[in-house]
Design a protein around this nucleic acid. Structure first.
Lengths: 149, 149
DNA sequence: TAAATTTCAGATAGAAAGGTCCGATATATG
DNA sequence: CATATATCGGACCTTTCTATCTGAAATTTA
């Protein structure tokens, strides 16, 4: 199988998007998130704990506790989530798997892949939770997808 | 970790590139390939067997046996190798992991990712073993990378 | 035809990713 | 203060991917 992000990273992105659509500074618990998004609950717990460690989310224990964004939505890009879970190796490692591949010593597809990789990075870095959140509230389809309302 | 192709797929791409740089219709054995490219031999064997089943390579047993391209190099694109090992799910599945994501029901990054995905496909489909092979023989650096000469 | 070489096929082992479980800890609320 | 509700931390299980091993089958060469 070939993919871009790990399953755990996909879960993280979905969960952060879900939380961004919640009102204000309310904490959302993993029971609700895992239930709505169909993500295994204990695994989601581990995943969101990682995001807390990386300062993307903050958490509170006990009743009314849960998780919420650690910063304002316009200060969190998709890239921050990807970085926290999967890291940034995909931005530098060779598509063909040559360990020595670099600008000075390029593999046969180095430059083509380089420009594509830059665009992936741009997309992830440009799109903040804030603008995606706005997009979600404006679209019934997206709300449905994230099981909102 | 996040990556594009599986390790097995990377091995396959490297091995096919290595074979393409070999003269004419000579069979190359896995001992030589795994040795030169630093790929575990038994695993490479399994991998190349998959490529034989998918008609990308052909093989011959016994002395002077080994593997070689099943078609002329200009009839094999990188995509054929990727397809044989990893499949093509990465061309249709949602980056954020939403199972229901589609054109009619797009995720927040559906269209951006769509164009990037198309370019990845184009790169893999456009670049044939023939033109990469030409590039390799013309570049001392690339020959070194593939441990040729 | 015998021997050496090489792929092929299937079983098995090891490592990493995905997923579960349980007890401890913190916090809101009665 | 007691209780219920959450996250937290660690151990553990399962599945998938990566890698190894062994013996059989085919083919070249002497």
């Amino acid at each position: 199988m070939s993919l871009i992000f790990s399953r755990q990273c996909e879960y993280a992105l979905q969960a952060v998007l879900y939380m961004s659509a919640q009102p204000g500074s309310k904490f959302t618990n993993i029971i609700e998130i895992s239930d709505r998004l169909g993500i295994p609950m204990p695994f989601l717990g581990k995943t969101l704990q990682l995001l807390v460690q990386k300062k993307v989310l903050e958490s509170q224990k006990g009743p009314k506790g849960g998780f919420r964004l650690a910063r304002t939505p316009d200060e969190i890009a998709l890239f921050h989530v990807v970085d926290a879970i999967d890291g940034t190796d995909f931005l530098t490692s060779c598509v063909l798997g040559f360990p020595e591949c670099s600008g000075k010593n390029p593999c046969p597809v180095h430059s083509e892949w380089g420009t594509l990789r830059d665009r992936v990075y741009q997309m992830l870095a440009d799109r903040t939770i804030a603008d995606i959140s706005k997009e979600i509230t404006g679209s019934k389809q997206l709300r449905t997808k994230l099981r909102l309302i």
